[in-house]
Simulated scan of single mutants.
Amino acid sequence: MESMEQLYETHAQTVYRYLYSITQNADLSEELTQETFCQAMKTIHQFRGECKLSVWLCQIAKRAWYRELNRNKKKPVVSLDELEIPLPSGRNPEKDVLRNEEKLAMFRMLHQLDAKTKEVMYLRLSGELSFAEIGDIVGQSENWARVTFYRGKQKMTRGRSEWSQD
């Protein structure tokens, strides 16, 4: 077994990218990556070698993300009136709104996909993971990840008409 330092150097980027793909928050992803490796140090004796180490670490990361979600449910919600959001200089609010609408439309289409395809699409688009890494995370082959991603893109380009027929 590698030392924890080697383990971190080898797998930290993969874990971080995986977390970023599901959180869309760089700071939170970094924090959860650290938490993942702390948890891995405590439980490394439980690793049975039935999967790749990176897959095991991503499972720990996913559980850390779920814990974070549960913690946030318990925090009080701040009203929008209490927030002051300054506009950065040089930004074009109209372009930002259009860009956000395009993103929303894309995420609405992604949301219509089946769970496995949706996960592959998120990991590839948001996490910028390779197909081999995606295959490892979801317990499938690299080729399966490629085909699933391709079919997901095809469904999204055909539009909602296909989903209404399913």
Rank of each mutant, 00 (worst) to 15 (best):
K103V: 04
E94K: 01
R63L: 05
N72Q: 14
V78C: 09
K73V: 08
A61C: 15
V97M: 05
I60W: 07
V97A: 11
L69I: 13
A61L: 14
M109C: 00
K75V: 04
P86T: 10
D96V: 12
L80K: 13
N70F: 08
L80Y: 15
M109N: 03
Y66F: 11
R67V: 02
M106Y: 07
R67I: 01
K73E: 13
S89E: 15
L110Q: 00
M109G: 01
K95F: 03
S79I: 07
L87Q: 15
M106L: 12
M109T: 09
R67S: 07
E102F: 02
P76N: 06
K74A: 06
K95C: 02
E68S: 12
W65E: 06
F107E: 15
L110R: 08
L69N: 02
E82N: 03
L104R: 13
N92Y: 03
R108Q: 15
V78I: 15
R91M: 14
R99F: 11
K73Y: 07
R71Q: 09
Y66P: 00
P93W: 07
E94N: 04
S89G: 06
D81T: 12
S89C: 05
N70Q: 13
D96Q: 12
L98Y: 07
L98T: 02
N92L: 03
R91I: 14
D96C: 03
R63H: 10
D81R: 02
K73A: 01
E101I: 07
N100V: 05
E102Y: 02
S79G: 13
E101S: 02
V77R: 12
D81S: 08
K74P: 05
K73T: 08
E82M: 03
K95Q: 10
R108W: 05
L83T: 06
R63E: 06
W65A: 06
E102S: 03
D81V: 12
E101V: 03
R63D: 05
L110K: 02
L69M: 13
N92D: 12
R67D: 10
S89N: 13
P88V: 13
V77Y: 11
E94C: 02
R99P: 00
E68W: 07
A105N: 09
L104V: 11
A61S: 15
R71H: 14
W65S: 05
L110N: 00
V77F: 11
F107K: 11
K75Q: 01
I60K: 04
E68Q: 14
R108H: 12
E94Q: 12
P76E: 11
S79R: 08
L69R: 08
A64N: 09
L87W: 15
E101P: 00
E102N: 03
N70H: 11
E82A: 08
V78S: 06
K74H: 01
K75G: 01
P86S: 12
I60T: 05
M109Y: 01
K62E: 15
A64F: 04
E84W: 11
L98F: 01
M106T: 06
K95N: 10
N92Q: 09
W65K: 09
E102V: 01
M106S: 04
L87G: 14
N72W: 01
E94V: 04
D96E: 15
S89L: 14
F107V: 11
L69K: 15
E102T: 02
L98E: 15
K73F: 07
W65D: 00
A61W: 10
W65F: 08
